[in-house]
């Protein structure tokens, strides 16, 4: 009786997911396997060509490589910058910690578009940096800071950093300080306590932060378009371009290549960090 009711409760969300997510994704995959058509969404004949064309084209391979490079750079930077901040936040007394976390969340309340334009105002040819450097005479002509891969990395990283900090800070806050005391009692100084105990025990937070930042990087559009311009396009930009050119099967194939990339990277990160080994119930 109880399980029957539970099954009934499951029906609406299940139906929603099937109807609006699983169905469309499968349909999109179906589209990606057809030849393009001038008049229809997709042509009649089945073909793997949409995939082989992308994966055999050095232009697209270059885009994929750049996408991976941007993701790697953003992950590395947000980890290196985010972890120490998270460590500091976790040491704060509860009230102060809440305050700092609120401050970290605050930028997320401002639209991505606004923040991307903020970077445009800083990095543009007549932006803050160039005018400043010109003013003190360090450069003679404005630098091309905007519309470059570093601009994309900087802009996106600053937007995504809070996700990393909050994830790791939560893991460190929940960490029982007795583990660190146990390590010290066994002769481990501060550095080795951190490396052998604190860091491995914070991997669930590192993993969730890394995955959030990675997936948001791979799916970011507004920021990379505004800061990367036509010269620093990523895989998402190509999907969008395909759609606007009405090359539906081509765009669908690109979307699935992006999805595959995301899945492989997720598996890789989980295999590397193995957050599961510290998440079992310790009793």
């Amino acid at each position: 009786m109880k399980t029957a009711w539970a099954a009934v409760l499951l029906v609406p969300p299940l139906a929603m997911t099937l109807l609006f997510f699983v169905g469309p994704v499968l349909y999109l995959f179906w589209v990606s396997l057809h030849e393009p058509s001038q008049s229809e969404l997709y042509g009649a004949a089945l073909t793997p060509q949409n995939y082989t064309a992308v994966l055999g084209d050095s232009f697209y391979l270059g885009i994929i490589r750049r996408t991976l490079g941007v993701a790697a750079a953003i992950l590395a930077l947000s980890l290196v910058i985010g972890y120490p901040v998270a460590y500091f936040v976790a040491l704060l007394p509860p009230r102060r910690r809440m305050l700092v976390l609120l401050m970290l969340i605050f930028p997320l309340m401002v639209s991505n578009v606004v923040r991307a334009y903020g970077w445009v105002a800083i990095l543009g040819r007549r932006g803050v940096v160039n005018t400043g450097l010109l003013g003190v005479g360090m450069i003679d002509a404005p630098l091309d800071l905007l519309y470059s891969t570093p601009a994309v990395v900087t802009g996106l990283m600053t937007i995504l950093l809070p996700y990393m900090v909050i994830s790791i800070a939560n893991a460190l806050t929940a960490l029982d300080r007795r583990y660190e005391e146990a390590a010290q009692a066994l002769g481990a100084g501060p550095v080795r306590t951190f490396l052998h105990v604190t860091l491995p025990l914070s991997t669930p937070g590192v993993a969730s932060g890394t995955l959030l930042v990675l997936l948001l990087t791979l799916s970011a559009y507004v920021t990379i378009t505004l800061l990367g311009g036509p010269r620093s396009k990523l895989l998402v930009s190509m999907v969008y371009d395909g759609v606007t050119a009405f090359q539906w099967p081509h765009a669908a194939a690109l979307a699935f290549i992006l999805l595959a990339l995301a899945l492989v990277l997720t598996a890789l990160i989980l295999a590397l960090l193995r957050p599961g080994r510290v998440q079992g119930t310790g009793r």
Partner: peptide, 20 residues
Amino acid sequence: IPPYRRNFSMVFQSYALFPH
């Protein structure tokens, strides 16, 4: 002297075994 240079060891009530 800090704990890690003292000659002792400790059993905690929660055991604090390293789960990893």
